[in-house]
Simulated scan of single mutants.
Amino acid sequence: MSIRAAGTVAAIAMMAGAATTASAQEFPSEPIEIIVPYTAGSNMDRYARASAPILGRILDVPVVVQNIPGATGWNHIYQAEPDGYTIGVGEQTGQIGIGLLEPLPYDIEAFTWFGHFATGNQMMVLSNASDFETPEDLKDSDRPVRCGTFGGLSAGAMQCAMLAGRWNFPLAFVNVPGPGEMPVAALRGDIDIASVGVNLWLDYIADGSVTPIVNWAEDRDERAPDVDGLADLDMADLAGITVFRAVMGTPEIPADRVAILREALTEVANDPEWHEFIESGNLDDNYYFEDDYQDIISSVIREVDAQAELIQGAF
């Protein structure tokens, strides 16, 4: 290489490095939008709206929240400019399941995944109005076990599929309007099993309306310490199939901007105002914003894909 050519290459490299540095220094310089692909008042919406003012204070730009429910909201994030100014708060497990049933206009794995504010502990229960008298009766059942779901396929429905695969029973999904209506469906005997947030079941466990099967996390939950965790049932490897209050962005956001947002989101999760929000709502607070988060998404996809035939048949 000639001296002139070498000098040109070095100059280009310096310019590229300067551009990257400038990108990091200048970002963000305009408002950031958080898209919530769920209805107002949902848990995802609550997490997004609580985080927005704190994130805005940390980054020194306005942060606004917009609800665009369903696939339209997910696609809005996916198709946005990959500049870090459009991000979202969503739950990937149910979306991965829906992708087994119908083509999606976006690739869940291709989103830029920053991490999550929390994984929501879910508890799976057996309705005491069901023909199955104990959780053990589910094993090797000849008839389909009816699992409650909502919004097409929920994370709880994916958990039902994982349990069906391990305990060898056929599955049928029953749609209810939302997680808040799941206990009513259990009391009426419309469903046999269901998995939603721990808090929703506590009163019904106490009055004997439902029988807990498992706390869908590796360990037990302090809110219901007598209920087995997945490790107690030798199923700890399924703990990743859960509800994520995850933060994602458009594919191919520059790495320096991803790092800035990930660091800011970590600061949000450690802010006193955030802790007050979590404590007042008795919400989960196991945040994780790290570089390897994309690997977690890939792992969930593999686990759900392994039960694709069962999920497709049950739906």
Rank of each mutant, 00 (worst) to 15 (best):
V63W: 03
P37K: 07
R262F: 02
P28F: 04
A10Y: 02
D221G: 05
S141F: 07
G88M: 09
R146N: 08
A40Y: 04
A50D: 10
N67Y: 02
P105G: 09
V243P: 00
G94Q: 02
I260A: 13
A308N: 04
L202C: 05
D83F: 05
D271Q: 06
G90E: 11
A52I: 02
E267P: 05
R146T: 12
P37H: 01
R49G: 05
P183S: 01
R302K: 14
S51C: 10
Y47H: 01
V196F: 13
Q79S: 14
M158E: 11
A164D: 03
E222K: 08
F114H: 12
F173A: 03
E91L: 12
D284P: 08
G84I: 01
A5R: 14
D221T: 06
L310P: 01
G152D: 08
Y47A: 04
D271M: 01
V268W: 12
F150Y: 15
R223A: 11
Q159E: 15
F315E: 08
E26G: 13
A48N: 01
S195G: 11
M15A: 15
C147M: 11
P105Y: 06
A236W: 08
T72Y: 09
L233N: 00
I98V: 13
A13D: 03
I213W: 03
I297R: 05
P225I: 00
L283G: 02
A306N: 12
E30V: 10
D219K: 11
E33M: 03
C147D: 11
A239E: 10
G152N: 04
V184T: 14
D285Y: 06
G90Q: 09
G70L: 02
D207C: 03
G240A: 14
I98S: 10
N75L: 08
W74Y: 14
V65S: 01
E30G: 12
N199Q: 14
A5P: 02
G94F: 09
D226E: 15
